[in-house]
């Protein structure tokens, strides 16, 4: 059996609330292959972000195992963890919250190249220019402060930073949710293009099933910390089996009936 890029098995995490505990994640199992996009969908509090934080080792699980690039991911500590972290990157909804707001674009991109010893100092400006070009930004932007550039440009900088360490997996946590629709489409196209050229896999966290359906190969729908269903993204969304899947589809705003295509 070929090994998956990422295999999550029986992941569980409980949080204390008052004198009881709440299961934020329970018996979560899925896998992602190279160059594949798996979406995690579900309502607020369904466990999407908990799963992301567990994978990124920002919090530790109570049970379960994670195998990433053949390594026992949860057992890695210290220097080996830091080395392997370069391979799993993240992009959040609000890049400004993820950056030092006073940093320049160049500084934001210099950090991963320096910290992960990807390029010596003399070579880094050329690398930074290459990263900016790769994400469709002018190299003139390098000297600008991150808070000065537009929301769409900032999210491109976040993507450039994520790919600086040549990751095999990027966790996209509502990464396009706050963007204007005209910008959002272009960012999704950029991400799809990076997947095509560099074989990057994505864990695409979103509550928007329309986005999930166009961007993800497969989807796992969470509800109350548990997996409600998973499968081919279009098959699941076109005919959801779980109650939460049906509710999400029904709640998604639709333009049908107004666009005139149904006029007889």
């Amino acid at each position: 059996m070929a090994e998956h890029l990422l295999t999550v098995d029986g992941l569980a995490k409980r949080f204390r609330r008052g004198d009881s505990t709440v299961a934020a994640a329970e018996a979560i199992s899925f896998h992602i292959d190279a160059a594949e996009t798996l979406a995690l969908a579900g309502p607020s509090g369904s466990g999407k972000s908990t799963v992301a934080r567990l994978l990124l080792r920002l919090i530790e699980p109570d049970a379960g195992s994670v195998t990433f690039e053949g390594e026992n991911w949860l057992a890695l500590e210290g220097a080996p963890l830091r080395t392997h972290r370069a391979k799993m990157q993240m992009v959040f909804q609000d890049p400004l919250a993820a950056f030092n707001p006073r940093a320049t674009v160049a500084r934001v991109l210099d950090d991963p190249l320096r910290i992960h010893r990807i390029a010596p100092r003399a070579e880094r400006p050329r690398r930074i220019a290459g990263l900016l070009e790769r994400v469709g930004l002018s190299t003139d932007l390098a000297g600008r402060a991150v808070h000065e550039v537009s929301g769409g440009q900032r999210q491109r900088v976040a993507i450039a930073r994520a790919i600086a360490t040549k990751p095999s997996l990027i966790v996209l946590d509502e990464a396009v949710s706050a963007l204007d629709v005209s910008v959002r489409g272009k960012i999704l196209e950029l991400l799809a293009d990076l997947q095509r050229t560099d074989g990057i896999a994505y864990l695409f966290i979103s509550h928007d099933l329309g986005l999930v359906r166009v961007f993800a190969h497969r989807v796992a729908i969470l509800d109350g910390g548990r997996l409600a269903e998973q499968g081919d993204a279009r098959a699941v969304i076109d005919a959801p089996q779980s109650a939460v899947g049906k509710a999400l589809v029904a709640a998604t705003p639709k333009l049908h009936g107004f666009t005139g295509q149904d006029a007889s």
Partner: peptide, 9 residues
């Protein structure tokens, strides 16, 4: 992007 938009990939 709606529930019947063509996939990007």
């Amino acid at each position: 992007i709606s529930l019947d938009s063509p996939p990007l990939f």
